[in-house]
Each structure stands twice: as structure tokens, then as C-alpha cells.
């Protein structure tokens, strides 16, 4: 029995010895790796400090939302994406000090349909869903036919806004009439009220519904579009916010569109980028508005289709374009 005990004791010391050896080994290894980790961390920290100090003392100029230029330390600048709340707020308020106005020169339109394509790609619409469309106008048998692009007229006395029961469609201080797809209940009163047939309804799932699913809804772009709600021309409010011409205006290859600020009395042609005096342009060309007898006071003006630079018959529109 005792011998067995002794043997056990001997075994125990053996184990103890090996344990001690392994502990020493472990400590040694831990020391080395610890030192390595520490020096690595120090290097990373030094690198970080160096990166940070590189921008120190450097300032960048930033334009605030109320148009003030301020200096901010370069290391404190962070990218900013406005959330739904802010998009809704600024979309409802509009751009202060502006009164947007569009002029459509009918003598230059030859149904290139680039405005329609640019609009549809920006607002995620199908080829048969229109915010703007070119109509073929034949007023009587003896008068010549011409093409007439027709966006929303952005009336100063909008009947569509009067009839909206849920305050989904509204007019802004800069004159743009917008629709809030988050509020719209799809009653289509506004479609019935609009004398210009400028509005469309999403009967089916919008074209990019899957891809746009996670996007923040921008009231100034109507993207993502929503099934069962109204969509309409927005005067490209998102572009106006960046001091850029609307999608349709800059896409036109024939110089049909002028766009500008009535307060400045100046409009810029989207094709030639030529800036002219608004009042003179309207006066010299006999500008007019659609259906003035209704008292809607549109913000879109037309110049009559006189001295046309092309022949209507020579460039017959495609068959499907004639069905309006």
C-alpha cells in the first residue's frame, strides 16, 4: 500500500515539475507576446496620432443651410445625409427668396422626347408614366399641328391643393406644388380637380420598387414612388436646391426650355445656357399661359409655335406617341 503511495508521490512531483516548467514557459511566451502586442498598439496609436495631427490646424470652408460660409476644423468634418424628418421639413418650406418660372418655346419643339426620358429616369417611372409629356396639337383642320410639352403648371392658385383632404399636396413659398407620398391616401380628388391633367396615379407597383425599398423618401424627388398614391412633376426641386436646372430643361437638345427666378427677372435656356430677361422674352414673343380663364395662374409660360425651325410633317412622331 505504502509503496503505491510513494509511487504516487513520485508521480505527483513529476507532474508538479512539468507543470512548473510549463508555467515558466507560459509566462515567458506571454511576456514576449505581450510586449509584441504593446509595441504594435503603440505603433497604431502613433500612426493614429500622426493622421490626426496631419489635419490639425487645417480648416475647411463649409456653407451652412442659411447660406453662411463658416470655417470648421478639418478633423471634425463628417459626411451628412439628411433623414426623413429633415427632408420633409425642407421639402415643405421650399427655397426662400425664389419664384421659379418655366418658359416653353413651342417653335423649337420637335418631339425629341429627351425631356420625358430624363424625367422618367430621375423619378423612377415607366415609359408610359408621365410627369411631362409632349402632346400633338391640331387646333383645327386649317391650322398647322405642333408639339406641346406639358408639365405640371405649378399654379399660384392650385385647385388640386384646395381639394386635398389630407394636406398631402401643397404649395411652397418658391411656387412649386409638391405631393407627399407619405401622407397621400390615394383618393385621386386632385386628379379630378387639375384642369391640365398633370397628375398620374400609381395603379401598379412602381418600376424600381424592389431596388428603392431601403431608400429614404425624398419629398422633392418622389423616390421611392409608392403604389396607390399620386405622383406629379416636381420642377425637379432636388436639383433647384443645388442651383441646377431641372432634369427636363437640361436634357432638351432643341433649346425649348427656359427656366429661372422671377425675382431676378432672368431665365436660362437649358440647351444653350444663354440667360435672357424674362419680361423681354415674354413681351417680344407673345408669351401666354394655358387656360387663363380658370384663374389658376400657372408658373409655366408658353411662346407660340411661330417661325418654326423644322417641318412638322418631315418628322412624323412615332405611332405610339400620337396616342395620348
Amino acid at each position: 500500500m505504502g509503496g503505491k503511495k510513494n509511487k504516487n508521490k513520485a508521480e505527483n512531483t513529476d507532474i508538479q515539475q512539468t507543470l512548473e516548467a510549463s508555467r515558466r514557459d507560459f509566462l515567458k511566451k506571454a511576456g514576449i507576446s505581450g510586449a509584441a502586442v504593446l509595441s504594435g498598439a503603440a505603433a497604431v496609436l502613433a500612426g493614429y496620432r500622426h493622421e490626426k495631427s496631419k489635419n490639425k490646424g487645417e480648416f475647411v470652408k463649409v456653407l451652412t443651410t442659411d447660406n453662411k460660409l463658416v470655417k470648421i476644423a478639418a478633423e471634425e468634418v463628417e459626411g451628412y445625409e439628411p433623414g426623413l424628418k429633415e427632408l420633409q421639413k425642407r421639402g415643405r418650406e421650399g427655397i426662400p427668396g425664389k419664384k421659379w418660372v418655366m418658359i416653353i418655346d413651342l417653335s423649337k419643339c420637335r418631339n425629341a422626347r429627351k425631356c420625358i426620358e430624363a424625367c422618367q429616369s430621375a423619378h423612377h417611372l415607366r415609359p408610359y408614366e408621365y410627369h411631362i409629356n409632349t402632346l400633338v396639337m391640331q387646333e383645327s383642320v386649317n391650322t398647322p399641328a405642333y408639339f406641346m410639352p406639358k408639365p405640371c403648371q405649378h399654379c399660384d392658385n392650385p385647385p388640386c391643393v384646395s381639394v386635398c383632404p389630407v394636406d398631402a399636396t401643397f404649395k411652397r413659398q418658391d411656387g412649386v406644388v409638391l405631393i407627399d407620398n407619405e401622407r397621400c391616401i390615394g383618393c385621386r380628388f386632385c386628379i379630378a380637380a387639375c384642369p391640365y391633367s398633370a397628375r398620374m396615379f400609381h395603379w401598379e407597383e412602381p418600376v424600381n420598387a424592389q431596388a428603392d425599398k431601403d431608400k429614404e423618401y425624398d419629398i422633392e424627388l418622389n423616390v421611392p414612388q409608392k403604389k396607390g398614391t399620386i405622383s406629379k412633376c416636381l420642377f425637379s426641386s432636388d436639383r433647384l436646391r443645388e442651383n441646377q436646372l431641372p432634369y427636363c430643361v437640361s436634357a432638351c437638345p432643341n433649346g425649348v426650355y427656359y427656366f429661372g427666378d422671377e425675382n431676378e427677372d432672368a431665365v436660362t435656356n437649358g440647351t444653350t445656357k444663354e440667360t435672357v430677361k424674362l419680361s423681354e422674352l415674354l413681351k417680344q414673343n407673345g408669351g401666354y399661359r394655358l387656360m387663363p380663364e380658370l384663374g389658376t395662374q400657372p408658373r409655366v409660360y408658353y411662346l407660340p409655335p411661330k417661325n418654326r425651325i423644322f417641318d412638322f410633317d418631315q418628322d412624323k412622331p412615332r405611332e405610339e406617341d400620337l396616342i395620348i
Binding site: 425664389k98 442651383n243 441646377q244 427656366f259 429661372g260 431676378e264 432672368a266 445656357k273 444663354e274 440667360t275
Partner: peptide
């Protein structure tokens, strides 16, 4: 030119 929102007015 006079600077306007979208261009230069001569």
C-alpha cells in the same frame, strides 16, 4: 454680365 441663379445675363 450679371450673375443669375443659372447663368450669366449680359
Amino acid at each position: 454680365f450679371v450673375k443669375r441663379t443659372f447663368g450669366l445675363l449680359p
